[in-house]
Design a protein around this nucleic acid. Structure first.
Length: 602
RNA sequence: GUGGGCGUAGCUCAGUGGAUAGAGCAUCGGUCUUCUAAACCGACGGUCAAGGGUUCGAGUCCCUUCGCCCACGCCA
């Protein structure tokens, strides 16, 4: 993917041009070849420089001494007069290259101004399609923590691929298929439809589903309607509805469709609050016409064995050649399984989109399922797309128990967003009372929504999704330190300065931005394009979050050290206003990649 | 048992073979008459789970061991 972004004609951002200049100058010495050049960012505390060449590799290839080679290189380098390279220093086996501050500042600010809200993104379309499957809640149930993680992480990954020049298909793969829908329909017939809306309606659905299930089991003794004689009937009833549904019985389909619509409407409220949208929301049932083909194709292959009517796949190797555990693609009663439907889905996607990649945002417990799915889809020749399972860790409560509805420790999306909004609003009202900011009641409400949602999103995106999470409300909804509200606050401060300092001068001298905090801030802003690329390649939104935090901190340090509106000279004021403008734009762009809003006041 | 993930400061986490391992929270100490203190500056805090190996160089790669989480043919 990195190659795609460097093809001729693509816009190169400042840091790329800097690296390019260094490579060209190094190769021109004739002392090493391009493949021996591996530039890195200097980490040593005393090191001066913005990019470094460690000389170990080249020296080894030539049988020489790294420190000597570094010396020779530094002596024989000829630098372009008006380029980005400022000074070159040798530190032992390293050659350190520093940016020429004036040129660097001008080019970074120019990059941002020119690209605006697209700054950081690849501007050349790859012409390739990526499908991102995320959120994927179940019909007739509330979205719980797992779906929340999938929704938020998936949305960010989809954003990252769109920003990287891919055509992105955002696919909400709804859980609308399976035996439980027979029970669900029977339960609705018996207890009636919910009278609430939104998540409350789904909560009622969960309730009657549970109640019906309890009736089926002996645990139903407590239910006043329990009648031992009816038990067998109840089971038959559910089974009958399940069968009717599969046979497209009009009444069953109508009830099922009603549940789908109810659930979609309820979830849509939450998606709207989160700013999440999808291009397609097909459920598993959408792919059922392909199930027969899948089973036939697999059944005829050498991979399959039949056992009492079931179709079993044995000894299938995965992408790394490891043999996967045996699994079924057809039950002995002829029914299909989750994996059968997932493979049918791949077949459909290949035919519909010809994707370069399909990215699944699903929890870690399904790691084996996806290895099996991918391996079988490949073995059947259904796709040549890159298939990736981005797995995320489990959420545990403070006692170390996994969250579950039955234990009563589950966290649902609506309640989480409400809690976050309430906390944000209380904090904003406190700031207003302290005279720190002035906002109307309407503005308080709007900002509380943006800050509340931002905190929830950031909690899922600031770290590697692989990690398990322990519930801690204070940390989840933190408004200080490394948190969304901090990032939003720094953006709002930028906006405040820009309001006061408007309009921006058409002519200004970026060369005046030589204060250490100004240069540090510029360097952070300049990193965004490479950060976007890395985040996409690693399926890692937290790389963006890291960058946002570093950039916001750099701005904060600048804000503290340098007054913009009361700068020493009018020229410096003008230049700093442009720096603040670029900072605001870069922060907005980074936040947008995470689907976090950037209020102008807070 | 087999396979996957994780193990870095008291807690939550970055660190993708390069130089003296970094942040936030917590604790302690400074900084608002100033462009918003949701902030800034400083201090404290480390046997990178343990042991071996690979190499100029390992938190990072390989092997072994330990601990935690998860998965493993008729749920999704």
């Amino acid at each position: 993917m990195a190659e795609n972004l460097l093809i001729a004609g693509a816009t190169m951002y400042t840091f790329e041009r800097f690296a390019q200049e260094i490579k060209q100058a190094l190769v021109a010495t004739g002392l090493l070849t391009e493949d021996q050049i591996d530039l890195s960012v200097p980490k040593a505390k005393g090191a001066t420089g913005d990019l470094a060449l460690p000389c170990f590799k080249a020296a080894k290839a030539q049988g020489g001494n790294p420190a000597q080679l570094a010396q020779q290189l530094a002596q024989q380098l000829t630098l372009p007069a008006d380029g980005l390279i400022g000074t070159v220093e040798v530190a032992g086996p390293y050659v350190n290259f520093s940016l020429r501050q004036a040129a660097f500042a001008a080019e970074v600010l120019h990059d941002v101004a020119e690209r605006g809200e697209h700054y950081g993104c690849a501007d050349n379309a790859t012409g390739r399609t990526v499908i991102v499957e995320y959120s994927s809640p179940n019909i007739a149930k509330r979205m719980h923590v797992g779906h929340i993680r999938s929704t938020i992480i998936g949305q960010a990954i989809a954003n990252l691929y769109a920003c990287s020049g891919y055509q992105v298909v955002r696919d909400n793969h709804l859980g609308d298929y399976g035996k439980q829908f027979g029970v669900m329909i029977a339960a609705v017939q018996r207890y009636g439809r919910p009278d609430a809306e939104g998540e409350a309606a789904l909560e009622q659905m969960e309730g009657i589903y549970q109640r019906y299930n309890n009736l089926l089991r002996d645990a139903a003794a407590a239910d006043e309607e329990f009648n031992p004689d009816a038990e067998g009937d109840l089971d038959d009833e559910a089974r009958a509805w399940s069968l009717k549904l599969e046979q497209d019985d009009p009444q069953a389909v109508e009830l099922w469709q009603w549940m789908v619509d109810l659930t979609k409407a309820a979830n849509q409220r939450n998606y709207d609050r989160l700013g999440v949208h999808f291009d397609t929301q097909h459920g598993e049932s959408f792919y059922k016409h392909l199930l027969g083909e899948v089973i036939n194709a697999a059944g005829e292959s050498e991979l399959a064995e039949r056992d009492n009517g079931a179709v079993i796949i044995k000894d299938l190797p995965d992408a790394r050649g490891k043999t996967l555990p045996t699994f079924l693609i057809q039950r002995s009663d002829g029914g299909t399984l989750y994996i059968t439907r997932d493979i049918a889905t791949i077949k459909h996607r290949e035919a519909t989109y010809d994707p370069a990649a399909i990215i699944y945002i699903v929890g870690q417990p399904q790691e084996l399922h996806f290895r099996q799915t991918f391996a079988l889809a490949r073995a059947l020749g259904y796709t040549d797309a890159e298939l990736t399972h981005v797995s995320f860790g489990t959420v545990f409560d403070a006692q170390g128990q996994a969250l579950s509805t039955r234990k009563g420790n589950m966290i649902y999306l609506e309640a989480l967003l409400d809690e976050s909004y309430t906390r944000a609003k209380a904090l904003i009202e406190q700031k207003v009372a302290e005279g720190k900011t002035t906002l109307s009641a309407e503005q308080i409400d709007a900002v509380a929504k943006q800050v509340g949602v931002g905190a929830v999103i950031y909690n899922d995106l600031y770290q590697d999704p692989k990690r398990n999470i322990t519930v801690d409300w204070d940390r989840m909804l933190a408004f200080e330190g490394n948190s969304a509200p901090y990032l939003q606050y720094m953006h709002a401060r930028c906006c405040s300065i820009l309001r006061e300092g408007a309009p921006l001068a058409a002519d200004y001298s970026a060369a005046l931005l030589v204060h250490p905090t100004e240069q540090s801030l510029l360097k952070e802003i300049a990193r965004l394009p490479e950060v976007v690329r890395e985040a996409a390649e690693r399926f890692a939104p937290f790389v963006i979050a890291d960058w946002l935090y570093a950039t916001a901190r750099a701005f904060s340090a600048f804000y503290d050290a340098c007054s913009v509106l009361k700068a020493e000279t009018a020229e410096l004021r003008a230049a700093r206003l442009h720096l603040v403008d670029a900072t605001a734009q870069a922060l907005r762009n980074g936040l947008a990649l995470l689907s976090i809003q950037a209020p102008e006041r807070m």
